[in-house]
Nucleic acid binder design. Structure first.
Length: 492
DNA sequence: TTTAGGG
DNA sequence: CCCTAAA
């Protein structure tokens, strides 16, 4: 029933533009207006109706809107309050305002959830087309200032990537409104509303919901995306955007929302199932997690980046490195190095191909010491235990990595000893020479826990006393260790 | 699945 | 760091 009436309801405000929906509507419209409000005030229970009222058809919007892009800030919905409709209608018509909506729709379209919007678009088309924003609002942009404010003002998302947070509130203050009647402020709140329609997964639609508290608020909800919380001061926004007379919104810099691929990366890293829902619930925890170690093997330490670029590798490899780095930058910050999704996808393919080999992650001295301690504690060969107990926080260090590192440590350690015997002429060839204390510890452990193959060049201690290792190896099973040693010898 | 060894 | 074989 409500779904039927919505279209009518929506047209009323459209006809009554430049009037306050709350107060200025004609008597005949008032009842319906109140009903609209009622419906809108309870988005959760009535969200279907609300959607039908305020959803935008992408096609329709595109006809009238020219905004190429929309900042990520509005990707997740928006709401205009405190003079919303009034201020919007009170100002001269300006299609620029609609560009904001267009941006929203564009982004939503990327989420592939716009299908239902077409069905409902006709209902609100008139309203939307007549919908006018105040000039000030036309200058709204989510450029770098928005991004910065987003991060700064988001109290709980200081560590979130790109300022993503669950609070999902965008507030745009318009303090310089010309018609001081109503438009003192324009608040854009992003609300995260979970909707369903016809019992199936709800298509993502834009919901504009006037609320009573602050005049009229426009709320756009998005199911699929995490929401953004930030406050944009009008001044900052103005300075970051150029508005031409023709109504073209030029942005000096633009922020991109997390791309699909970005989201997919999260989903892949996340152990939980149900991508979509998890994405919604997923908050800055996971987003903040990504840049660090959740990328596990995919992650390449930033300190290596310049090195990779500088390396005189083949052009292909350089390109791969750059693209890979770029993709990772996309994760770290929202500034994407790619102009288009396709470009990013291409880079992704290269990256995956490049990922065949684990990106080298330099071992820090602390890690080496930790490894040595673990070996001293658990014995050689118990790499899994060492990994679990000492490198639990280092997702990028696998037991095999530990073993390889230990092997290399033994090699370098004895090579070092060898070089020192020869006169230390090649000391400079060691990029990062281990501290003597560590080297000594490695040698001690090498004698205590002989590592078959690695010790072969140092033939002195291989067969010296395999039994001596057992007493010192507290937790390592003697038989096991012995077996490995024998096996290693067998292979030789 | 973990470990050892080779590449 | 990757791959494979062995246990």
């Amino acid at each position: 029933m409500r779904t039927e009436r919505k279209p009518h309801l929506i047209k009323k405000p459209a006809d009554a533009k430049r009037q306050s929906v709350d107060e200025s509507l004609g008597p005949g419209l008032k009842d319906e207006a109140t009903e609209v409000e009622h419906l809108l005030v309870e988005p959760k229970s009535e969200h279907v109706s609300v959607d039908r009222v305020f959803c935008f058809g992408k096609e329709n919007i595109e006809k009238h809107l020219k905004m190429e892009d929309f900042s990520c800030a509005f990707d997740y919905g928006w709401k205009i309050g405190s003079g919303g409709l009034d201020s919007i209608h009170g100002q001269g018509g300006d299609d620029l305002k609609l560009e904001v909506l267009d941006g929203l729709l564009d982004e939503v379209d990327e989420v592939d959830d716009i299908q239902a919007a077409h069905d409902l678009s006709s209902a609100c088309e008139d309203f939307l087309l007549d919908f006018e924003f105040p000039e000030k609002f036309s200058e709204l942009d989510c450029g770098p200032y928005v991004g910065s404010n987003l991060r700064n003002s988001s109290s709980e998302s200081s560590n979130s990537v790109g300022g993503m947070s669950e609070s999902s509130i965008v507030t745009v203050q318009e303090s310089n409104s010309k018609n001081g009647v109503l438009g003192k402020m324009v608040n854009c709140d992003i609300h995260h509303t979970i909707r369903s329609e016809c019992g199936c997964q709800a298509p993502v639609m834009e919901t504009i919901r006037p609320s009573k508290e602050h005049g009229q608020d426009f709320v756009k909800s998005d199911d699929e995306k995490p929401l953004v919380s930030f406050i944009v001061s009008n001044k900052k926004v103005k300075s970051s955007v150029k508005v031409t007379k023709g109504g073209t919104l030029l942005r000096q810099k633009r922020l991109r929302k997390p791309t699909k691929r970005y989201i997919e990366e999260f989903s892949r890293n996340s152990t939980t199932s149900g991508k979509n829902k998890c994405l919604k619930v997923r908050s800055q925890e996971e987003f903040s997690q990504v840049p660090s170690e959740s990328q596990s093997r995919r992650g390449r330490p930033k300190k290596i980046m310049p090195k990779m670029v500088e390396l005189p590798l083949s052009a292909l490899f350089s390109f791969l490195s750059l693209t890979s780095v770029a993709c990772e930058f996309e994760s770290d910050c929202e500034l994407s190095a790619f102009e288009s999704e396709g470009e990013c996808k291409r880079a992704k393919r290269f990256k995956t191909a490049c990922d065949r080999r684990k990106h080298q992650r330099m071992w820090t001295l602390a890690e080496v010491i930790k490894l040595v301690d673990g070996i001293a504690q658990y014995g050689v060969g118990r790499w899994t235990d060492i990994k679990k107990l000492l490198f639990a926080s280092s997702a990028y260090r696998t037991p095999v990595d530990l073993r390889d590192k230990w092997r290399n440590l033994l090699r370098s350690s004895f090579a070092h000893k060898h070089n020192r015997k020869e006169g230390e002429t090649n000391v400079k060839h060691y990029v990062r020479p281990l501290p003597k204390t560590v080297v000594c510890r490695i040698r001690e452990l090498a004698t205590i826990h002989p590592y078959p193959k690695a010790r072969s060049p140092n033939h002195s201690s291989i067969n010296s006393d395999p039994s001596s290792k057992q007493p010192t190896t507290t937790k390592a099973a003697p038989i096991n260790t012995h077996g490995r040693s024998l096996r290693g010898k067998k292979c030789n």
